[in-house]
């Protein structure tokens, strides 16, 4: 990763693309605190976050999903999302387990919120299904619902369409629009160019750790450096 600069504005759907090994996930890891940059600055709402830990970044309003879906396999859809709600709840997981007095009101609120997020991603009819029994497309939607339950301002989606069929990808695109319409900004890494070109307001292209292009999808599709990066050949970066 070499001197990469970019900006994400509130309300945008922005995509990060590039060949394998270009550094896309490294950027996501640096935005979410899983890796520290050797050099450079990451600001979220003008506050520097590049040295913060993942949970601190989550509490500031950034949530993410992973390439390999990471769910609590033996819990239900609803309980997976409730865990996301607890991360920003006032009572906390430990007090919830000990059933401290304010817990009932808080639990009711968390239940309602969790149901709301499950409905938002279109899994409302699967509230009590065990996560491990869901097909891949629904697993991804569930991971998104859990991330949303932390009430982020910025949602990072790492290859959300990986392993999905075309119907599942179409449902994912609808869900991404719905989430944006609730006021959440979305930044995604994705290999599925159909999805990227359909949903993104702007696209950043990385190659060998360098930004080689940035702009609206229609311009990116025609960019000579981008075409060469994907088809092979010399890059004029």
């Amino acid at each position: 990763m070499d001197n990469v600069n970019f900006k994400v504005y509130q309300g945008q759907i922005k995509a990060l693309i590039g060949p394998n090994g270009a550094g896309k996930t490294t950027i996501f890891n640096m935005l979410s605190g899983f890796e520290k940059p050797t050099k450079g600055v990451v600001k979220f709402k003008e506050r520097r976050i590049e040295k913060l830990k993942p949970h601190q970044i989550t509490s500031l309003g950034i949530a993410r999903t992973f390439q390999n879906t990471q769910l609590f396999e033996e819990l239900t859809v609803l309980d997976n999302v409730k865990i996301g709600c607890h991360l920003k709840g006032q009572v906390g997981i430990l007090r919830a387990m000990l059933h401290f007095p304010p817990i009932e009101k808080e639990e009711q609120k968390i239940h309602e919120e969790a149901v709301h997020y499950v409905n938002l991603v279109g899994l409302g009819d699967k509230l009590n299904v065990i996560a491990g029994e869901l097909p891949q497309g629904e697993r991804r939607l569930l991971e998104i619902a859990r991330a949303l339950a932390t009430e982020p301002e910025l949602l990072l989606l790492d290859e959300p369409a990986a392993g999905l069929n075309s119907a599942e990808t179409e449902k994912l695109a609808e869900t991404i629009y719905k989430i944006r319409d609730t006021g959440v900004t979305i930044f995604l890494v994705e290999h599925d160019m159909g999805l990227v070109m359909e949903v993104s307001d702007e696209v950043i292209v990385l190659n060998y750790g360098r930004k080689i292009a940035e702009g609206p999808p229609l311009l990116i599709q025609k960019d000579e450096n981008v075409i060469q990066a994907y088809l092979g050949g010399k890059i004029n970066a």
């Binding site: 994400v8 509130q10 450079g40 600055v41 600001k43 900004t185």
Partner: peptide, 30 residues
């Protein structure tokens, strides 16, 4: 409103990453 700004973001591979990458390539016969 500007939400995220990345400025001169640089990540150098450390020795451990280089070593594990080399081993991985070797075991794959590349």
């Amino acid at each position: 409103m500007l939400l995220v700004e990345a400025i001169n973001l640089t990540k150098e591979f450390d020795g451990l990453v280089r070593w594990t990458t080399s081993i991985s390539k070797f075991t794959k016969g590349r």
